[in-house]
Every structure is written in structure tokens, then in C-alpha cells.
Write a protein that binds this DNA or RNA. Structure first.
Lengths: 174, 174
DNA sequence: GGGTACATGTAATCAGTTACATGATTTA
DNA sequence: TAAATCATGTAACTGATTACATGTACCC
């Protein structure tokens, strides 16, 4: 019951629960999908599992609705708040992972047809331009704190770089 | 035995095996750590497991050395080559994931002490500058094909952007 | 009140890591 | 020849996804 090792998914759930007050797994899913999930996504059963585990560890309070869908509603406990504070104030020496199947395919490009590489690049340009639009619109449509906004800023910068990158690939391998 | 669904890790192993000819899991581990592993890393037992699975699927040929360490040595089969070609020529609609604990902590920065955020930013600047040096040195020290080189180029561009980003964070939140 | 989309959850499985164990080679 | 390091592998566990199942709200 005490101080289990928590992975990133647990801190995502714990952090969002702290931000929101009371929250159901479904709402968590929605919020992840439109925030941290852009960088680090999770399937919905994982969210249910993590919430249950956090409740078992005493970091979340779990209650069940009496009526309607009888959903489980979670809320962070004091000990959950403490654990999160400890984590967010700690250092992290691990590096960014840039997980992307398209980049992996490009790396192995010599095994591919030239046309497939061109098609890959063209598709990635479109995908990343669309994502850039999405990120650019976020500050207009939602009110985020300065820290969350800063991560959106990173998203924008990244999408600019990678859009340009795939455009260059398209040109270079034609 | 036929056409199992393969995940990214399997294509990494299969692709590197195709590039290299005969290879042991240990060499695979080394090669991953200094190439695709910069973007997408795996623990060494996973590499052993994936190689075994690919052999069971008929995509790799497995033989055991008679002497010394009696290592397992793998080589891609024709059917492995075909499977890899099919994959590398296919499209991928999924997006990049930018998995980084430091970014996650920044997102939740309002729960942190200002000094912790500054320390985080300062540390990330150092880490990413070092990684930038590493990437920049690769084309000088190794001979890579044009596709692999292009992914190094992306690494360099990315590290420039994220180094700058954390420098901005350091300034902004002081 | 029948269909459809939304919401909630579990079960089975697969992927991946950590911890452990051990043998082979090199070097002092 | 002992110690250190390199190399190889397994076992146990945890994390995460896919597939499934079902109930609720809404809308026509």
C-alpha cells in the first residue's frame, strides 16, 4: 500500500486529477487525448488500470456514483499530492525519444522503392502541417497556464522543423 | 509459423540483420544503441526475444556456434527480406511521439517549485547540447548511406530546437 | 421505441523491462 | 590465476494494447 514505483502513465493520471479535482476515467481519457497525449499517448484501458492502481496505493480516492452509469470518480488524496510534488520537483536525466515509424522507414530507405520514400515524405508533410495547425490553434481556443502553453510552443517549433525536414526529403530523393 | 503481425522492434531487428548479413544479438544491441536507438531504444532482453520470435516465424535463420561462447547467429531469410520490403514500402499514418519526462514535468510545472523548473531546464540544455555534439560527429566518424544520414540530419535539427527551447524556458521562468 | 453514438469497463494477450545468473575473454 | 569486463541469456514481473461486452443517453 505504500510508495510503489510509479511510471510516467501514473504521473500523467495523477497530475491531471490534481488539476481537475474530481474526474472519471473517461474524462481523463479525453483530457489526455487533447494535451499530454500529443506527446505521449495511452489506450483507454491503461487509464482505467492506472487509476485503479493509484487508488490502491492511496494516491487517489475512488467513489462510485449511486445512480445512472455508476461511474467511478477519482480525486487525489493528500498523499497523492505529495507524491506528485516530489516527482515534479525531481530531476530527470533520460533523453527524449522520437518514436515515429516514418523516420524508422526512412532510416531503412535503401531497402525501399524511391517512389515509396517520396510518398512517405509527401504524406508526412501533410500530417505534420495539420498537426502544426492544431497546435497553433490551442492558445486561441483554450486557456492554459504558462507551463502548458510552453509545451504547446515546443510542439509548434517541432512541427515546423519536421514539416520542413520531410519537404527536404521529398526534394532530395526525387 | 506464417505472417505474424510484427511490431516496430521486430522491424528494427530485421532491418539491421538485413544490413549486416550475419549478426548476433549482442551486435544487434550495439548497433541499435548507436543508430535507431537514439530515437527508439530497447532493452537487451527484448532484442533476444524478438530475434527468437523472428526465427520462429521463418524470417531469420538461427544457427548456434559450435565453439567458444556458442552464440546464436542470425541471418535474414528470403521471406524475411520480403516481409521487410513490404513493410518499408508501406505508408504509416501514425504521428511522432515525443516521449520525454522533462517535457511532462514542464507541462505540470505549476505544481513545481520555480527553482526545480530552472534546474530542470539547465540540465536539459546540457543534455541536449551534448547529444547535439554526438549527432554532429556521426557523419565524420562513420560512413552511412544517404537515408541514415538524413535521419542524423533530423536529429541535429531537433537537438538544436530543443536546446534552444530549454534555454528559453530557463530565461522565461527566472 | 429502435437505432446510433457515447461511455464504461473487463479479459486475454502481447510487449518490454528489471533483476538475476553465468560463461568467456582480457588484463594485471 | 584472480579480478574485471564483456557477452549471453533466462525468469519473473509490469506496462500497455486489442478485442470484447455491455449499459446509457440521445435523436428520429
Amino acid at each position: 500500500m505504500e510508495d510503489p514505483e510509479l511510471g510516467p502513465s501514473a504521473y500523467v493520471v495523477l497530475g491531471l486529477t490534481l488539476q481537475h479535482g474530481e474526474i472519471t476515467p473517461y474524462e481523463l481519457k479525453q483530457r489526455i487525448a487533447t494535451s499530454v497525449g500529443y506527446f505521449w499517448s495511452y489506450s483507454h484501458p491503461q487509464i482505467y488500470a492506472v487509476a485503479r492502481k493509484l487508488a490502491a496505493a492511496g494516491y487517489l480516492d475512488e467513489r462510485q456514483e449511486e445512480t445512472g452509469r455508476r461511474r467511478k470518480v477519482y480525486q487525489a488524496t493528500e498523499s497523492g499530492r505529495d507524491a506528485f510534488r516530489t516527482w515534479v520537483n525531481s530531476s530527470s536525466d533520460n533523453m527524449t525519444e522520437l518514436r515515429d515509424l516514418a523516420i524508422l522507414k526512412l532510416y531503412f530507405g535503401k531497402f525501399a522503392n524511391a517512389s515509396a520514400i517520396r510518398a512517405l515524405a509527401a504524406q508526412q508533410v501533410e500530417l505534420h502541417k495539420a498537426r502544426l495547425e492544431t497546435y497553433a490553434a490551442i492558445p486561441q481556443t483554450r486557456s492554459l497556464d504558462e507551463f502548458a502553453l510552453k509545451t504547446v510552443d515546443l510542439g509548434v517549433r517541432f512541427e515546423q522543423v519536421i514539416s520542413q525536414f520531410w519537404q527536404d526529403v521529398e526534394k532530395e530523393f526525387s
